[in-house]
Amino acid sequence: MNKLSLIALSLFSISFSYALETVKVFDGTERTCESEKDIFLNRNGAYRAKALKSEMNDQQVELTVKFEFLTCAKTDEGYKFVQIDPYSNTEYKIHALDGEIQTVNVLPINGYLKAYQDGVFKLIDRKELAFKAVQNHVVQIDLKDLKQKPSIDLAVSKEVILDSVDTQIIDTIRYGAFRVHFDVKETGASLKEVK
């Protein structure tokens, strides 16, 4: 069984190796890639995220997060998730109203990682996604924001053109969000340890 867990961000501090608390706050917890049906269910892709470290820089916390963008595909070894550039054009099939099968081309326009202050939904940082399947991003968080609420939400989304014989529309694909918790002190913040 080939499963991809999209919830568990394994978070590690730069100076410690311990599990940290991360809670999925939007949509499902797990994606599978075991059949043709999963190719359709994962037609917009998926991603994994791993927080690599957090560091203090003056009055800012810098959180480094690694992202891996994936798609479900049929390979010589069977169905499995494979890495894909988030800006790659993809396609899927649908049944049109007249019963014909149509191809929908998915043409990415742009993609973003956004960090929000938990519960307040204040935009803290926004990064444009790179043209790579695996990419690191450094999210800058003001220490004063973490003192108000010691957690942030990370969310990935991209705007795409959905192009078929009958229609062409612009849509936003939201891939879900992760919540990252911090231990906050007067002089700094670090990723929170899971008990």
Rank of each mutant, 00 (worst) to 15 (best):
K147H: 12
K147L: 03
K147Y: 08
Q148A: 13
Q148D: 14
Q148K: 15
K149Q: 15
K149A: 08
K149Y: 11
K149H: 15
P150K: 10
P150T: 11
P150R: 12
P150N: 15
S151V: 08
I152E: 02
I152N: 03
D153W: 10
D153F: 07
L154N: 09
L154D: 04
L154R: 09
A155Y: 11
A155R: 10
A155N: 14
A155P: 05
A155M: 09
V156K: 04
V156A: 05
V156R: 01
V156Q: 04
V156I: 15
V156G: 03
S157F: 14
S157A: 12
S157T: 15
S157M: 11
K158G: 11
K158E: 11
K158T: 07
E159G: 07
E159P: 08
E159S: 13
V160Q: 08
V160H: 07
V160K: 04
V160D: 06
V160P: 08
V160I: 15
I161P: 04
I161N: 06
I161G: 00
I161V: 10
I161Q: 12
I161D: 05
L162P: 04
L162E: 13
L162A: 00
D163Y: 09
D163A: 06
D163H: 13
D163C: 06
D163S: 13
S164D: 12
S164M: 02
S164R: 03
V165L: 11
V165F: 07
V165W: 05
V165K: 12
V165T: 09
V165G: 00
V165R: 09
D166M: 03
D166E: 13
D166T: 07
D166S: 07
T167F: 10
T167M: 02
T167H: 07
T167G: 01
T167Y: 13
Q168D: 00
Q168P: 02
Q168C: 03
I170R: 12
I170S: 09
I170N: 08
D171I: 00
T172M: 06
T172I: 13
I173K: 12
I173Q: 11
R174Y: 12
R174K: 12
R174H: 14
Y175F: 15
Y175I: 08
G176D: 07
G176H: 04
G176I: 05
A177L: 00
A177I: 00
A177E: 02
A177H: 01
A177C: 00
A177D: 01
F178K: 06
F178G: 06
F178W: 13
R179H: 09
R179V: 04
R179E: 11
R179K: 14
R179M: 02
V180E: 07
V180K: 02
V180P: 06
V180D: 00
